[in-house]
Design a protein around this nucleic acid. Structure first.
Lengths: 210, 210, 210, 210
DNA sequence: GATGAATGAGTATTCATTCAT
DNA sequence: AATGAATGAATACTCATTCAT
């Protein structure tokens, strides 16, 4: 997440203070993530996070303005990483069904690798809701846009409202991934990917010539 | 200054106390619902609810064990009413596509009539999450069961995992309805019903003979 | 300060809650006054005041928005009482020197009866400064106005700037009274009154020719 | 990027460290003075002062035991400078009215040149009060002494209590100067000097018969 | 000497809950 | 049953001060 190691391996000689500062910050972020995932934004206090990170209560405020600032940072970071991952997964793929599958794979893969983040974001905690809404609304907007273009290109039937549909797809994603992240052993990831892919492709013109 | 004497002088055994008790309780529930819908479970205090209901703070505890008890009651009540409505809507309809459409109509109709409840339940507030999860998990379980039977009856293709699918459908429902309830003017209810119906019917064997 | 006793002696039958509320409020005010006088606005916490008043910490906030609100109330109340007292003392006295003496007597009498308030207001605590400034500025404005009129009436020489003079008089008053209230035994009140009167009358046309 | 090397490359044995130490100390004092004048002793933190002085937080404590020590130093220094100025202004002047005028001129001149100090000392901040009191009490004691001697010498009437009067004069000074320093444009300094002089000379035997 | 991260006691404030009337 | 004043544990946040580097 940071380029600390890079500068440390160089002769740059970062000050001791600075190094330890970044480490403390990282510990606080990690503590926040796992505690939020376990018990939600509300039930966790800044003292909890500081204690879990092994620092004094006041130290929290040397690094974050308040609890929500830490949460926001975790959330933004996670969204950025998810978007990166999806983007990288789709890069160069032009066939739409394949793109959708790649997207679903990236999403499920991310969920598998970041269960804490998923639980933190989608466990429905009060204020996380705001972050969540933003995340989901963004995703929904992207999907709506995508479908509108697909319809315009004649690749999709236009008999479903793209606005409703995009929210449906996003709700589906979020819930499936949240459910699955709680216990990934209940269904193999491939099945999740496959199901999500097929549902999302709903409305794509079947290749009748097949 | 109080109406006690008035009702006490009547012979009604159902009793003034009882009636006014029920009325107070109802006022508290109504206040809780609209306040929770507006600002979420966390930002609302028991004092807020009591004040909004026009009773003293302590009165709250004459009727509910605590804030969550009132919330739970509202939520359970809402779920019960929603289930009733869906059940009544489907009663006597045997054709599956029609049943699904009736279900969607009931859901959207309920959302239209109970925007506060929808916003309260699905606005993602911290502890409401637990209620929400229960609600959604219940719904998901019902759908999963339904699809398994449909598959067994040969009415649906078995190439989608019913577990994943049920959560997908529920997530879709919840999100679409929450989104729509925030501003019902953005899309006509029929469009919502139609879109939900079609997606949910995905996987149903098309009537090949057509 | 309040008319509680009055209403209690009447048949008005104030509710028990209300009576106790007023009493608690009064205790908090009294505690605040004596603690502020002793140690200043800053060093005293709301917990201190609550403890001194024999109530729980949270009770403080049932009666005052915060520490400054209580302070402001004390200060405003004191200023009002002082103004009343001065006004009453001067009522009906037309001769200026006599008015000034009556004023000084009222001021010193008030200081004698309200040492805590004087120390609280003029001990120079940070935020009390704002109250103090307001108090002093108000007094200064009154004096300035008074002198301007006296000059216009030919009763005072116009060779002193009324703006500067009014602040001088007020500073003198405040400091003398604060100093004296710390230990009234050092100088008899009459001496204080006499000195203040004479200084303030400085500039009055002596009626030599009379 | 730092000027350390520059000073280190010079041969000055007074030593870079020593010189820079004094400079750091001076910067801290200057920062404290302007910040205290702006916002009072309480609202300013040691971090604020250090930051304003361009040094690290810990450096503050290499130079001052604590915040109040810095404040005290500023205050003492200011008092010393004021006393010096008054003393120099009066040097060689034997005629009392002239001395008093010279004093007032020195006071007002000092206020004009040191508005920050005046505001810092007389803006009424909590603990500054203690310093202020000391300052004012000292001044008052000096004046009292002066008047007693003047009375003994037959230069002043003895009909005013020197104790009360000295506090009155000091209160007057402090308040007028604080008021004026907030906005020196409201009244020309000469008017202030003149007014203060005349009031303070009150009680001096007019030399009419002379 | 300077640095600045860490400390943790201190303080204000909130609010679910109790209970005497 | 209703009242509403009191409660006090809980919690966020501040900031003077320390100390290892």
């Amino acid at each position: 997440m940071h380029v600390i190691s890079e500068s440390e391996t160089r002769g740059a000689r970062q000050s001791a203070g600075s190094r330890s500062r970044a480490a403390t910050r990282a510990r606080l972020l990690a503590s926040g993530q796992s505690l939020f995932a376990e018990r939600g934004l509300h039930s966790i206090t800044t003292h909890d996070i500081a204690a879990h990170a092994g620092v004094a209560a006041g130290t929290f405020y040397n690094h974050f303005a308040d609890k929500r600032a830490l949460f926001r940072e975790l959330a933004n970071d996670a969204v950025r990483r998810l978007e990166d991952r999806i983007e990288r997964a789709c890069a160069g793929i032009t066939d739409m069904p394949e793109r959708v599958r790649a997207q679903a794979e990236a999403l499920v893969g991310f969920a598998a690798d970041n269960r804490d983040v998923i639980r933190m974001l989608f466990s429905g905690d009060a204020d996380s809701a705001k972050v969540e809404s933003d995340v989901l609304n963004e995703l929904a907007a992207g999907i709506e846009d995508f479908r509108r273009r697909a319809i315009a290109d004649g690749e999709m039937s236009d008999d479903l409202d793209p606005g409703v549909l995009s929210h449906a797809v996003v709700g589906m994603w979020a819930r499936v991934v949240a459910w699955w992240a709680e216990d990934p052993s209940q269904v193999p990831p491939d099945t999740v990917v496959d199901t999500l892919t097929r549902i999302q492709l709903f409305g794509t013109h079947p290749r009748r010539s097949d």
